[in-house]
Amino acid sequence: MAFETILFSVVDGVARLTLNRPDRLNSFTEQMHAEVRAALALLREDRTARVFVLSGAGRGFCAGQDLADRSVLPGEAPVDLGASVENNYKPLVLALQNLAMPTICAVNGVAAGAGANLALACDLVVASRSASFIQSFSKIGLIPDTGGTYVLPQRIGVARAMGLALLGDKLAAEQAAAWGLIWSCVDDAQFAETVDRLAAQLALAPTKALVRTRQAMRASHLNTLEQQLDLERDFMRELGHSDDYREGVSAFMEKRSPRYTGE
C-alpha cells in the first residue's frame, strides 16, 4: 500500500511507522489519520512483526492536530471536535493499546498537544535530550485529549498533571524522565542507536508475555488486590502452556540464550 503522509515497514520483526509531514512538524490531518489506521490494520495481519516503533520525521515528533486542516476561524461554521476525537484519536489510542506486540515511541523533538499524548499511548517512550512535551490545549481553549486526562494523572500525579494541562508549559525530556512520565531520555547522538537496540531486544523477547504484562499493568488501577491476583493467575495459567515458556525454561537449564517465537 502506498502512503503519502507516513512511512511504514516491517523488517526483521520490527514494524516502524514514521509520521512523515516534517514541514508541518508531523501534525495530523484527516489523510494522515486514515493512513495510520490503514498501516495498523496491515500490522494486525502481519505474523512476522514482534515490536512496533512509532516515530516522526524531521526535527519534531508530532505537533498534534494540524489546525489548517479544519475550519476554526471566527465567523465560520462551528467545528465538531468531538467527532474528530471519536473518529480519529480514540481509535488510534485504542489500536496502539491493543496491538499484539510491545510498542515503543521514539520522540526526537517536540511532542505537543495530541502528539504528546499519542507518545504516551505506547508501552515505552524514549526521547532525545532535545525533545520536549507540551500540553498545549489550554492555549486554544481546549482540554487534553488523546488520553491525556487519563494517562497524565496516573503517571505523574494530579498536581503535576494539572500544572502541565492548565499552564501549557514545555516539559523537557530530561524532566519528563525524572518525573516518570517516560521511560528514558538519551543524548541526541545516541538516540537512534538506543531506539534500534531496544527494538531489536524486544523483537527477540516472548511477545505474548510482554502483551499480557501490559494488559495486567493497565488493569491494576481499576482492580482490587484480589481481582488483580486473579488476573495474574489467569495470565500465568495461559502463559504456562505457551511455547515461549517452555523455551525459556529449557534455555535457562541449558545455559543458553532463548529462541522465542512469540507463541
Rank of each mutant, 00 (worst) to 15 (best):
A2Q: 14
A2L: 07
I6M: 04
V10W: 01
A15E: 12
R16W: 11
R16S: 11
N20M: 08
S27I: 07
Q31K: 07
M32H: 08
R37W: 14
R37H: 08
A38D: 13
L40T: 02
E45T: 11
R47E: 09
R50C: 11
V51T: 06
L54D: 01
L54T: 06
S55T: 12
G56M: 09
C62E: 03
A63Q: 10
L73W: 05
L73Q: 14
L73H: 12
E76H: 06
G82W: 02
A83L: 07
S84L: 13
V85K: 03
V85T: 11
E86K: 04
K90G: 00
P91H: 03
P91Y: 10
P91M: 09
A95R: 11
A95M: 08
N98G: 06
I104P: 01
C105N: 08
C105A: 15
N108Y: 06
A111G: 06
A111S: 04
A114G: 12
G115H: 02
N117A: 03
L120H: 10
A121Y: 03
C122Q: 04
D123W: 07
A131S: 05
F133R: 05
F137T: 08
F137R: 00
I140D: 00
L142S: 15
D145L: 07
G148N: 01
P153F: 10
Q154K: 09
A161G: 00
L164N: 01
L164A: 04
A165C: 03
G168M: 12
A172K: 15
A177E: 12
A178H: 12
L181F: 11
D187M: 11
T194N: 15
L198K: 01
A199R: 03
A200E: 10
A203P: 05
L204I: 09
A205K: 01
L210P: 02
Q215R: 14
H221N: 03
L222K: 07
L222S: 08
N223T: 01
T224K: 15
D230G: 14
E232N: 13
R233M: 13
M236E: 04
M236G: 00
E238F: 01
G240L: 00
H241S: 13
Y245P: 00
G248K: 01
F252C: 00
E254F: 12
K255S: 15
R256P: 02
S257F: 06
G262W: 09
G262L: 07
E263H: 15
